[in-house]
Simulated scan of single mutants.
Amino acid sequence: FMDARDITPPYTKGALRGGTHRHEWSGDGQWIGYTYNDAVLKALEDKTGEKHNLRTIGVSKRNNPVFLEKDAQGDNVSGEWFSALVVRVTPTPKPGSDEISHAAGDSWVGTDGYVKPDGTRQIARAFIGKVKNKNGKEVDEVFIVDIPTDITIPGEFGPLEGTDTTFPMPPKGTAQRRLTFTANASQAGCVGIVRSSFDGSLLAFLAKDAHGIQQIFAISPSGGVATQLTFHDKNVEGSVRWRPDGKQISYVWEGSIVVCKIGNEPFESRFQLLTKPTENSPSNLVWSHDDRTLAFNRIITDEKTGKSKQIFIVKPPVIEK
C-alpha cells in the first residue's frame, strides 16, 4: 500500500483515516494528490446527524514509510508513503469569508510547481472550493494550496493525524489561498477541474462570461485578474487540458474536441475542431508528453455488445516552435 490507514485512536501521523479518489502523480513522480473523505468523521456524522464528513484534498509523498501494528479487524495498514491533508474545510463557512465547506476539482500546478514573485519555485495544487457569499449562498471559487517540501511537521491548526471530532490538519508551511472572487458578481461561480499549464504560469477553469455562456478563463497562481480565453456562442463542455508546449489549450465544445491557440488574435482564427461532433461527447482528454498525440474517451454503440466507453487518439496539427 502507498498510503497507510489508521482509523483506531490514537491515530497515526502520516496515515489517512478514510477514502481517496482521483489520484494524480506529480510531474516528478515524488507525490500523489487526491480528494479525500474521512471515515472517522463519517461515523461521527452517522451518530450525531450533524455534517462532519466533508470532501477535501490530500497528498502522499514518497520515501517516508508509515508503519502500523495490525489490528484484529484488519482495517489498519502500513504504507510506503507519508500522507497528509493539505486543505482545511468547515461545515459552516462564514458568509463573505474565504472559508470553504468542500474542496475538489484539483490538480497539480505545473510539472514542478510555479514560480513565486520572489523567484523561488513552489509545489502546489489548484482546486475548486465552496464558499458562502455575503448573503449565505454557496458559490464555487478557484483556490490554490502551496505545499511544503516537508509534510511531516504539524502546523498551527492541529495534529496531522486529527482527533475523534476533527479532520487531520495541514502540515506546517501549507498556505491555502483564494484566487477568484466571483461570489457577488452577476455571473458567480467557477466549475470543472482546475488545470495548470505545464510551466505552472496559468491555471485554466470554467466560468460564465458576461453573456452567461460557460467559457475557459485563466488566472496566475499568484492571483490577479482572470483572462477569458474562449469566446464561443455556446457553453464549453469541459475536459480542459493544456498542450505541453503551452501554445494551445484543448477542450470539448458542441460534441467536438477543440484546440485553441493562446494569444491576442481574433478568437475565430485561434480555435480549430479536431473531431466531428458526436452524440456522446468525447471526455477525459490527455496529451502525450511530446505534445503530438491527444487521447480521449468516447462512448460507442455496438449492435452486439451495446454501449461501451473506449479509448481514441487524434493527431493535432503541429505548432511551429
Results as ranks from 00 to 15, higher is better:
D112Q: 10
G129W: 00
A104F: 10
L206P: 04
I144V: 14
V225A: 11
D150I: 13
T180R: 00
F217D: 00
T149S: 14
G224K: 02
L202M: 15
A124Y: 01
I193P: 00
Q176T: 12
I123G: 03
D106S: 10
I100G: 04
F127H: 01
A103K: 02
A183E: 09
G224R: 14
Q215K: 06
T182K: 02
I213P: 00
V131S: 09
G105S: 13
E138P: 02
H211C: 02
I100E: 04
I147C: 10
I153V: 15
T182N: 04
Q228R: 13
S101A: 07
V139M: 14
G162W: 03
Q176S: 13
D164F: 09
V142S: 02
H102N: 11
D164Q: 06
I216Y: 00
Q122N: 12
Q215A: 04
F231W: 08
K172I: 09
D112A: 12
G113S: 07
E99A: 10
A104R: 15
H102A: 06
D199V: 05
S220M: 09
S107Y: 06
G110E: 06
F205V: 09
S222W: 04
P171R: 09
K134S: 13
D233M: 13
F231L: 09
I216F: 03
P221A: 09
Q215H: 10
S222I: 02
H211P: 10
